[in-house]
Design a protein around this nucleic acid. Sequence first.
DNA 1: GACCAGGTCCTTG
DNA 2: CAAGGACATGGT
Length: 211
Amino acid sequence: MSVSDSSRAGEILRIFQNRGSRGVWWPGTPEEVVIGAVLTQQTRWENVERALARLKERKLCSIAALHRAAEPKIEDAIRPAGFYRIKTRRIKALASFIIEGFGGIKEMADYPLPELRRMLLDVNGVGAETADGILCFALDKPTLVIDRYTERICGCAGIDERGDRLKSLLESALPDTMTVHREMHAHFVDYGKEYCGKKRCNECGIRKLHA
DNA sequence: GACCAGGTCCTTG
DNA sequence: CAAGGACATGGT
């Protein structure tokens, strides 16, 4: 990471802070956040909400219920979120990991962040974004979610890093609190939706940080 | 009808 | 490592 990378990162975060708080950006109980973290993979949030509502109607919207439910029941319930077969397998893997490994989400939160993150990444279907989404928005850990928007926006600003390297770079510019990490991810997504569509990515203020 | 969405995994070069 | 494909529904 170069000096200019750090300064660009600082500028981006400052721009976001000036936009104000995003509030409760990822709604729901910790269990719903965990389930939603898988459902939202490559999927619009409105469709995730439909799937979550159907899980609730069928009394399947908890880690324990999903752990014990038959796969076809889950598949049918989450159909609106798309990729319903593979997501069912992923939810199953995650539920087993949580129930059999810890007993529940509460107990899981006692583990230290770096170790927990490594363990989550070993679960099939849980990549960096899903793991960090769970850690930050369900388990209250100060960790930054890096998604496509984050990479696009930072790339637009001239920061040529991605994945875990980008994550470290941005985190080193943030205070170590869960709230700030939540807010920043929310900003990246909201700003990305607003400005980083195919057409408008030349018009946003971030672009001016380049060079 | 084409294109995309709050990704991840697996296979190939 | 980079690139390409599979997974699937619903909105523009």
